[in-house]
């Protein structure tokens, strides 16, 4: 039995900003269904009184001193962008005029 349908995977793909259709959608749905089926074995584990582990280290609220310090020069960083109009990064138009 398939745990997920192509419709569900297509919706997840839209959320993740990936295009997925045709044979790819069918193949991914089958593979993800098989992986989710395998993962189902966790449902049998009794975790009634178990706290979740998010991080293994007993560290919390790690802060550094709130002092200004030099950062990378903005032209160095802007130069990494695939499209630029210094001092800005360029993207397709967002707002209709």
């Amino acid at each position: 039995m398939a745990l997920v349908t192509p419709e569900v995977i297509a919706q997840v793909a839209r959320l993740a900003r990936l295009r997925l259709e045709g044979p790819d959608l069918t193949r991914f749905t089958e593979q993800l269904s098989e992986i989710l089926q395998y993962v189902q074995r966790l449902q049998a584990v009794d975790t009634e009184r178990v706290e979740p582990t998010t991080h293994v280290l007993p560290l919390s609220n790690v802060l550094r001193k709130d002092e200004p310090r030099p950062s990378l020069p903005s032209d160095t960083v802007i130069a990494l962008a695939p499209a630029q109009r210094p001092p800005f990064v360029a993207v397709p138009k967002v707002i209709e005029t």
């Binding site: 593979q31 989710l36 449902q43 706290e51 979740p52």
Partner: peptide, 30 residues
């Protein structure tokens, strides 16, 4: 990469979070 992004997005999405992600973090404790 796409498979893992899809799987990760799925297990974190509304309605599945507790059954998968939260459950996974608890078994991690064990």
């Amino acid at each position: 990469a796409k498979r893992r992004i899809l799987l990760g997005t799925y297990v974190l999405s509304q309605g599945y979070y507790e059954a998968y992600y939260l459950k996974g973090m608890k078994v991690r404790t064990l």
